[in-house]
Design a protein around this nucleic acid. Structure first.
Lengths: 301, 301
DNA sequence: TTGAAAGCGCTAACAC
DNA sequence: GTGTTAGCGCTTTCAA
């Protein structure tokens, strides 16, 4: 020990890895780590991993399936101990779209954040987006707002659940939905002006709405800007609810009511589960958490 | 080759690492990867690294020196080929504060983004924050705005340069600055309401200002909210300039004039330099880039 | 051009 | 409890 100290010896991590067949490294796959929400997730995950003595190999894949597959293989070739897929956009609708995940799960455990896939060695940590959206829509309806436009930009796993939650709430309240009341935005995730423009176009087509539920805060901010530019009073003439409870909620005026899906809790649970899996414990295949509606100035409640 | 194909063989990365003494992995040190600006930087860097066949080991250190040192050592023990320090908060004011960087540079090349340190095997890529701030302040002064409050939250390497740029512009215009016109905010980076409150407190103390230059967009958004809540017309009664040209600039109304410091260019240059260093080429120790003032609704120009 | 073998630095198993 | 050694899977060097 003294000699080690004196020559300040550090073990060679490669040799160690070769012998033990692990470098205590977890791969993180994430479509875009500069996205507000995903960045937070990556941050929480990295922190928790470090607390458990694991390192994080980060891979940003973009939204293209082929690239996702390539990155996943690359991580596997680096012999990571597990791979965490951050965000719901890794799960496709068809079985074929998810084959690459099942394949990877044959080698190491796969953890999904905000997505679920029923497959061996795949573990899912999800926020109950369906229920959160159901409650958000119901709250607006209870406040007498019935012409609620649903504004979204993703058909990912969680995107589909959010939409269903909204639709179910409307149906259960006896409100029939023309398809024009669910508006899909296809532009850049960062281009708030383009989102605002989309809403102006909707309005120009004669579609009336006095409420907007958005699938993320960016879209909701666009709704707030739309209202301001059209001189609509918020929340009296237009109520708005966002999703993610990000920093954007406090950037606009009035401040944005938004759904907090407890990202930090989800991430911590994900790492707890992962550590359990790696330790060989029996771990539930799917853990579901509830979100919470954070009430601010863009809603009448 | 056929046999390799048939049994789909993949080389063992550990054994390869052991022999070559490299795993083609670069360590990324970053105080907080959930910060808007740092997240973007990490994203660009990760992308460029991948394009050059390198992997990224991410380490979020927080803002505490001791933790930074620990993380740096940890990365070194993992035998990364180089370490990138993302963000100016890794460079302290005293030589002692930077010793850990010099020490690390004895083992692998160190790349600094938005910070500079003159030391062997340390390479700096910086935006000319001094000049950007000088120009921003000068632009306001030329527009007849002279009571300019400087609102900042960091004394990091780039933080100090920004402040000097502002001070120089004021001095050069013959405007003398009472210390109360530079306001340091100490709260959470995400708590915009607290920042707004800080400005109200400044105003209550009788300090008059008709312009705010902020060291980041968050602080600038707080200034916009302050003006709205006080019913000050923007930009006539209060002009505001932010820094980073982040998504927040388009979230508020009017949209925020902000300085774009060309983060993507900086990151690409950083990776280009790094690849040069690793290839044994001679590379400039410091590369300086200019920022650009992006004019939007919060300024009269 | 092809083949054999040493060595990278550690871990774990085994013998003493 | 202490000491020795085989082996992890690749790269590189040297020999044929």
């Amino acid at each position: 020990m003294e000699v080690m100290e004196e020559y300040d010896y550090t073990p060679n991590a490669f040799a160690r890895g070769l012998g033990l067949n692990t470098m205590n490294t977890i791969g993180i796959l994430c479509a875009d780590s500069s996205d507000l929400y995903l960045a937070k997730a990556v941050y929480y995950i990295e922190q928790s991993l470090r607390a458990n003595n694991y390192d994080s190999l980060l891979c940003c894949t973009g939204y293209d399936l082929q690239n996702k597959e390539k990155c996943l293989e690359l991580l596997l070739s680096k012999k990571v101990d597990s791979i965490i897929l951050v965000g719901s956009n890794f799960i496709g609708e068809t079985a074929a779209d998810n084959k690459y995940i099942r394949d990877a799960a044959a080698e190491v455990p796969i953890m999904l954040l905000n997505a679920a896939l029923d497959s061996p060695n795949v573990y899912s940590i999800v926020s109950d987006d369906y229920r959160s959206m159901y409650e958000a829509a119901s709250a607006l309806i209870s406040a007498g707002i019935r012409d609620i436009l649903y504004f979204y930009n993703s058909n990912s796993y969680s995107g589909r659940h959010k939409l269903s939650g909204y639709q179910a709430a409307m149906t259960d309240a006896g409100i029939t939905l023309p398809p024009s009341m669910t508006q899909f935005y296809t532009g850049s995730h960062e281009d708030i002006d383009a989102m605002t423009q989309t809403l102006f176009n909707v309005s120009k087509r004669g579609i009336k709405f006095n409420g907007v539920i958005a699938a993320d805060d960016n879209l909701a901010v666009a709704a707030v800007k739309y209202a301001r530019q059209k001189d609509l009073k918020i929340p009296e003439e237009l109520a708005v609810i966002g999703y993610n409870n990000s920093i954007l909620t406090t950037c606009c005026e009035p401040e944005l009511t938004s759904i907090d899906n407890k990202l930090e809790t989800l991430c911590q649970q994900l790492i707890t589960s992962l550590m359990g899996v790696l330790a060989g414990n029996s771990i539930p295949k799917k853990a579901l958490f509830s979100g919470e509606l954070i009430k601010r100035g863009t809603t009448p409640f």
